[in-house]
Design a binder for these strands. Structure first.
Lengths: 150, 150
DNA sequence: TTAAATAGTTGTAATATCTAATTATTAGCA
DNA sequence: TGCTAATAATTAGATATTACAACTATTTAA
């Protein structure tokens, strides 16, 4: 089978946005505890990197600091995150996920995983292994640390 | 190597949003001819399905008809698409991409493919083959017709 | 010890997106 | 046939999201 970079790129460009669309719909369609994808990514990142600064989160998620400041405002207003001053550098803030935030993160994560696992359930094991291998390769290429991303 | 559905799903959920973020930044960062991802997907879909109705495009891209109506307004205002009445059913509208729209679509597509191909260039052929196989599997699972999606 | 750099927030504006209501047209059926 | 229901699209109105520029507070370093 011929595998040239251009063709692989084209396939990625066709497939990735549609998977993303499924993930987005899944996350938004749960009454009251819905999250946008950026909100989800912020919660997941901060949950794994407790005490992250605003800049770190903004950088990870790909938003500007002002946008992230407002996004965090919203999550704090919903009681999902907390912001406190960094005692070592009082310009910085330390972000954390509240218990309630963790609960919602967990629920949304599980729901989304079920959605995806359900889709993947139609595939036989070797296809799923191909997906795992591919994602592993893509993970390195897009510089995503293990068990971190989202 | 153990490959269970749950684990594959988790990996997808970690990796896909980050690839998407790269695609989004790439598409937006070209002065004057920038497109949002939904705009890009609309142009790509209509270009391959000339005369699509508003509902068909909205359905494909995952937006409501009112949102799509406004999105299309914007693309028409930029001279990238045209809207005309369907003679067979005058409730419907037939959407097409203008020459200018095709040109911009082409440029943005090529730019994004270069971005992706560049990333993929760091991988050896068997990794790229794994990616192709995985995308092929995902394509069927998410019901993405060949050479269509975006 | 003050100028420059850094972290974050606020002001303002442009998009993007939704639900509900409205208009126009077609389809179904008694 | 003629009326009702269904469908396709748009408009109205509201809310979210996001950006850039300007500002405040704090730290670094010359």
């Amino acid at each position: 089978m011929t595998v040239d970079r251009e063709e692989s790129a084209r396939t990625l460009l066709e497939v990735v946005p549609i998977i993303m669309q499924g993930i987005r719909l899944e996350m938004r369609n749960r009454r009251l505890l819905d999250l946008t994808v950026p909100q989800f990514r912020v919660l997941a990142f901060v949950n794994r990197n407790k005490g992250s600064s605003l800049w770190e989160v903004a950088n990870h998620v790909g938003l500007t600091p002002p946008s992230m400041s407002r996004l965090v405002d919203g999550l704090i207003a919903r009681g999902l995150m907390a912001r406190k001053d960094d005692p070592d550098d009082r310009r910085r803030v330390q972000l954390t996920v509240t218990g309630r935030g963790q609960a919602i993160l967990e629920t949304v994560t599980q729901g989304t995983l079920s959605y995806l696992a359900d889709k993947l359930g139609d595939l036989d094991a070797d296809k799923r292994e191909a997906i795992d291998n591919a994602m592993e390769a893509l993970r390195t290429v897009f510089a995503i640390p293990h068990g971190d991303g989202r």
